[in-house]
Design a protein around this nucleic acid. Structure first.
Lengths: 348, 348
DNA sequence: CTGAAAGCGCTTACAG
DNA sequence: CTGAAAGCGCTTACAG
């Protein structure tokens, strides 16, 4: 059995130092962002040796010493939601532009998993954390903030924790939706939402819907349900809504609280053979397939890319704010209306 | 300015050891999976102290010493592909069941980003790596394998690197698609694919399509294109295909190489007012909205959840194989046909 | 069953 | 501008 000269196990700082004939300290400075404090000659020798040996700083060791991990953590409540995917993509691009890497964790809306992932990211010394909270992880977040990690809440605020927030302007979104539906001649609405208890954004949208109905001379009702095990209830709710004799002469429309709901509702309507438009359908969150269903589904698109980027930018600005004087901010984006056939009435 | 007693900065092993009146070594053993080698009394004291102090092992330090990071890396070529999302979700669930965490990185099909991410994951001492390769990162993979990290290729094989593979049985998938289209009465096909150079699965499907046309008494042609900047070419290709007089009396169908293609083709067809079914449409990859478009789009569903789980299982089995005797395996899953209206002809 | 000690690869005062 | 040394929080032979 021959022992071949195997691939050298990843070069360390000590090997680079020896090869370049300098101290480990200098090599560390070269890669730690203090390059300019080194003489030109030294810079060149280090650069050459590092290149030849294929040196890459070991992030584990860096993190241990409290250095820069170059990692941003992102904890998402539902990675299968198209909104989440697109925001992640925007955040990732922004990270790359800043030489950072994004570590994404999915909690499946489970507070226990959320705590797990936060502990993990903490132990990896992430330099910033974006959280689309599912539970109430204020303890964990405080711990992170105390060690100086910038935090930003995405889409969902936390009642017991104050931090920068990047999200859709939910009130404006609801107003825009109501305005559109009113303009299109609908008079009686059903608002369908996932359970609001876990997510402030769902709550805000629901409340605003109730508050603003009168202003828009609309009547309406709401139903909240868990998409995983309450599809039957959705069917019933829609049946009841469409059959409701009290508003039999009012043009009716269904407003969906997010993209997942829009999918579920569209399925039900299509299955029931409802003609979209005569019964209005509109959803918050743009969907790649929105234009393909029937006459097209009207949506209120969130600027997901911007939101993802803004989350990173906010993190970075917060990091600059060494003395912690910056007050916490809420960065709210307006949605964009994509009017399609599903909110275009045919009948007189 | 008062200095409040602030939250204690994450307890360390030394504090737990002191608190429990034992050595750091014992605490390390307790959390390092050698619990049973400790006396019951010691176990209890460590457990109690750790709980009270809220101790959690620092993963950075663990990783540094070559211990278990409890991390699995997952490098995906296109996180926005529904296939990727679902596989990730399956893999994540399997991870959780084994007390592992999944770190997902997206390369956007860019080999440079892929190398970056591999270097990152390497430096984090992941205990296993799942890669849906975009480039030819055999160097990086070899380095990883040399230090004993189990590897599995997802969906795409690599010509210059041998490892376990978990994927769809692409040949069976194409055969099943051709068989279905033939049965439904279509005679002339257009196969649309993303560029095959970067992905073995695309290549395999394309080749099989060409090979098996005759067997199924079909004629057909293919077009490959980049979805990002060649949508115009897609339009033209479809126009040409539909207008093709040579096969004017052959019922025609379009077969889409993956979910992204299905979306793009469906858009074009809908925009052109084509009635699905008369022109057949079928896609590899199930899509949540497939049943909503026109009469429903026929798909060949990949068992994404199974694939994700199998990737993790394979990693774990490989890890058990200390002496490296296990030959590399290809685990190929059959797709499942979801026949819908888009492959149901109306005309005689 | 238990522990003292060395060391993983870095960073960071401190000193010159 | 440069470096020697201490130390980050762990794990792992080694010894008992």
């Amino acid at each position: 059995m021959t022992v071949d000269a195997s691939i050298p196990p990843q070069a360390t700082i000590r090997q680079v130092a020896a090869d370049a004939g300098v101290s480990k300290t200098s090599v560390s400075r070269y890669f730690g962002g203090e390059r300019e404090r080194l003489s030109v000659g030294m810079q060149q020798r280090i650069q050459a040796s590092a290149e030849r040996l294929g040196y890459r700083p070991n992030q584990m060791a860096r993190g241990l010493k409290g250095g820069h991990s170059r990692l941003i953590g992102m904890v998402m409540a539902d990675i299968r939601n198209p909104f989440s995917i697109d925001v992640m993509h925007g955040a990732e691009q922004a990270c790359r532009e800043h030489g950072l890497s994004l570590v994404v964790c999915n909690t499946d809306n489970d507070p226990a998993q959320e705590r797990e992932h936060l502990a993990l990211l903490t132990s990896y010394r992430v330099e910033g954390l974006i959280i689309n909270a599912a539970g109430h992880p204020s303890r964990e977040l405080s711990a992170l903030a105390d060690r100086g990690t910038p935090l930003v809440l995405l889409d969902r605020t936390l009642s017991d924790y104050d931090a920068d927030v990047v999200a859709l302007d939910n009130r404006q979104a609801i107003d825009a939706a109501l305005n559109h539906l009113q303009t299109q001649g609908y008079r009686h609405l059903l608002y369908v939402s996932e359970p609001p208890s876990q997510a402030s954004s769902r709550q805000t949208r629901l409340e605003r819907f109730h508050q603003q109905l009168e202003t828009h001379q609309l009547s309406g009702t709401t139903v909240t349900l868990d998409l995983i095990d309450e599809t039957q209830r959705l069917d019933n709710a829609i049946d009841d809504f469409l059959a409701d004799a009290t508003h039999s002469d009012s043009p009716k429309a269904i407003l969906c609280g997010n993209g997942n709901i829009t999918l579920a509702v569209a399925r039900t309507l299509v299955r029931h053979g409802v003609e979209l438009g005569n019964v209005g359908l509109m959803g918050i969150d743009e969907l790649p397939w929105a234009e393909l269903v029937g006459p097209g589904i009207t949506t209120l698109a969130q600027p997901t890319d911007l939101i993802g980027r803004a989350a990173i930018d906010t993190l970075l600005q917060r990091r600059e704010d060494k003395d912690g004087t910056l007050p916490s901010r809420h960065i709210l984006y307006h949605g964009r209306l994509n009017a399609r056939g599903s909110t275009q009435r045919h009948e007189r």
